[in-house]
Write a protein that binds this DNA or RNA. Sequence first.
RNA 1: GGCCUCGUGGCGGAGUGGCUACGCAGAGGACUGCAAAUCCUUGUAUUCCGGUUCGAUUCCGGACGAGGCCUCCA
Length: 544
Amino acid sequence: MELKLYNTLTRTKEAFAPIDPSRVRMYVCGPTVYDFAHIGNARPVIVFDVLFRLLRQIYGADHVTYVRNITDVDDKINDRAARDFPDLPFNEAIRRVTESTAAQFHADVAAVGCVPPNVEPRATEHIGEMRQIIEMLVKGGFAYVAEDHVLFSPQAMDAANGPLPRYGALANRSLDEMIAGARVDVAPYKREATDFVLWKPSKEGEPGWASPCGIAVAGRPGWHIECSAMSWKHLGETFDIHGGGIDLVFPHHENEIAQSTCAFGHGVMANVFMHNGFLQVEGQKMSKSLGNFVTIHQLLENYPGDVLRLTMLKTHYRQPIDWRQSELSRSQAELKEWADIITDNALETIFENPDLQQVDNEFIAALADDLNTVKAITRLRTLAAESSFENLETAKKFVGCLSLLGFKNLTKPNYFSDAIASFIPPDKEEVFTKCYMLMRTYRNYCANNFMEDSKRISADILKHGIQVSLGYTGEILVSFPDYDIGAEKDKVEALISARIAARKAKNWAESDRIRDELVAMSIQIQDGTDPVTGELVTSWEVKR
RNA sequence: GGCCUCGUGGCGGAGUGGCUACGCAGAGGACUGCAAAUCCUUGUAUUCCGGUUCGAUUCCGGACGAGGCCUCCA
């Protein structure tokens, strides 16, 4: 199986050839933990999770190392700590912010089906490596100390002879352009406007560490250096794949390449750079000022994580994606159909323990073509249509593909149905309607494994006199104290029997009258014939 | 201003130098006493203007439009 990946360095799709197939190495820029992750943050996490799964499929689960960092030193974190915990010592406040935000991030991305990376390094645990690289850069003449800062000089990099890449090669821009386009506010200690910060002094009360290069005052790292340090520590001086959002191309990845190649004297930091496209919300750029800033957590109140995952993968990762409510509903409906195939054919065990040796080749080939998840999903639809009890081998392949794509809750079809099947006492209609959204949220919290939240919300619903729980297929079960559901069921069964009798007598008027009565009770009926006896049979369910 | 990406039917969204996937919605049909469910069939598109070519949606140039980066925002 040939894997082809689009490489931002060459702007072409290339055959992927790992440096060491027994140890394929990928680094992805992870979140800065200062706030709930938004849906845009979820895109690279999901995209590179799919790539991670595919690499493990191709090279073997033990032969892929995936590193995704957590940035826990940043001005935005400091600001948030000062705002949220003004009474705590500053470093304690920062710790609260980063720990709670990181825990939230982990819960959110687990809910959208992402497996944890092999290593999840934190910037604060790699200050030593950062200092080492900075020392190397100064020693090599690529960086200099000025007013307690250490600055990297792209000009020095380009002046050096040897294997180093040209600064700006990744982003495809020249230093001259950058100087011409440089914005105001060039710090006085910079020799050139394009120099960027490797290390800066900490102000009083800010987090700080012993500085490199003989700088006396405590300091903290610039943004880009952490990824050079952490990828070096965990993947080596050069590795295979470096990923992130397209906005990271410049300056973040460009500067990482500059730091790493100059420090280690190689021509490359990573052989392949991959970038996912941006996300818009309902046709507009997502921004706090427009009020359309959507966090993963908010979406997970309204949908099981699989719905977000499928919606994300229905657009190729390099294309811009427009995040729309309507598309989420479609994804949910499609997942319901897929989950029904699994339960109708009793494939739950296969779904949870698929034989990935037997997975569909056409499906893998689609993914191997630069992660063409859209084509892969098209293949899934074909497999779904061909899956049946008579064609169990295809059905098994189908569920194997679903597993490989990272769906997790497909053994419970009713996670993807918004119908609440329950008899409602007439005097409870109003409060039921009022609690409908809460009950869905409860279901979604359960599906997403947010157990604390689900307990909290079921307690809220109980205050309205409604007991909510989940059934075996993920359906929302509602019960009311002092209400005899058994009697209600008997009444329905009696009506169904009466209708069957009426139908046998071809008394259509009476038959239709009974159906109308059942509809008024929110009972949906479905006529059929018993395949063995040929008897008229009628199934029914509560539907609202 | 510089650099980059993109522009496909009612909607979403792929591939492809010649016949343009797939999903949703729509239409028609089958099955039903009627419903419901299910199944089958099906219409409609490649922003515009040039160029290359026997032939372009696909390659090249231009226009228009959308978006991104140049501001430690994925």
